[in-house]
Design a protein around this nucleic acid. Structure first.
Lengths: 116, 116
DNA sequence: CATACATATCATCAATTAGCCATATGATGA
DNA sequence: TCATCATATGGCTAATTGATGATATGTATG
């Protein structure tokens, strides 16, 4: 059950949608329902152009979908499978969160005192 | 249910374990059971030091565990939740693999002809 | 048509990341 | 103790990635 290298690259690429704090913030913010670019921008405290850029990336990857309503573009999580991935991510974080916060790779050490 | 920023950084960090082709290859190779560094190195066609480096990272994050037996260190997937994440990843890839392969971010475009 | 608002795009740059290679360390057996 | 094998570590470098800010594009309204 060891996959061909090409599929591994695709799968790794898919996971990159979740592996950046900004893109993950966007996905997490959509768990509670569809939102516009400006709403997400305000919620996660990132610039409108940054949010738009990441949403474009997530849409290209099929992780989110969009629906235009007048000037506003409403984004939402593309499927229940993506929701499930986020859920399982929470379960793993419950198990290993205390270890990950000590890891100094990827944007340095994350403060353990704020871990739930 | 929008998480605090610190937890988002932790969760994103956790997903980085899956988001690099080499680390994902290592995790995928362990789905079928525990393996040594050299066995993984041969299987995924990466240098021993590279594999060792990535295994160290995955172990620090709690995604894999190790068991020494003489000279050999045997690595395995840390929990069934990690297995589940890989499974859900497969399901999402089934849905969106054709879109991800067209995405030119992250190591350029991945050939669509090899997509299952 | 002009203006306002929402969103998308692009060039640039700084920071981050992954792999290589050499080497160090640990375990085993003669 | 030494040779061999397995694994871990560190310095260095090239490639990659994410954010910014300016600007372009799309929609709505007067």
């Amino acid at each position: 059950m060891y996959d061909a290298p090409v599929n591994l690259e695709l799968k790794a690429k898919m996971f990159r949608g979740f592996a950046d704090p900004t893109r993950l913030s966007i996905l997490e913010s959509l768990r509670s329902g569809e939102k516009t670019v400006n709403a997400i921008s305000d919620l996660i405290d990132q610039s409108q152009s940054n949010v738009s850029n990441h949403l474009s990336c997530l849409k290209e990857c099929g992780l989110v979908v969009s629906r235009r309503e007048g000037k506003n573009m409403h984004y939402s999580i593309a499927s229940t499978r993506v929701q499930r991935l986020l859920n399982v991510g929470d379960l793993i974080l419950d198990e290993v969160g205390d270890r990950i916060c000590r890891c100094v790779r990827y944007n340095g050490q994350t403060s353990p005192t704020d871990f739930k």
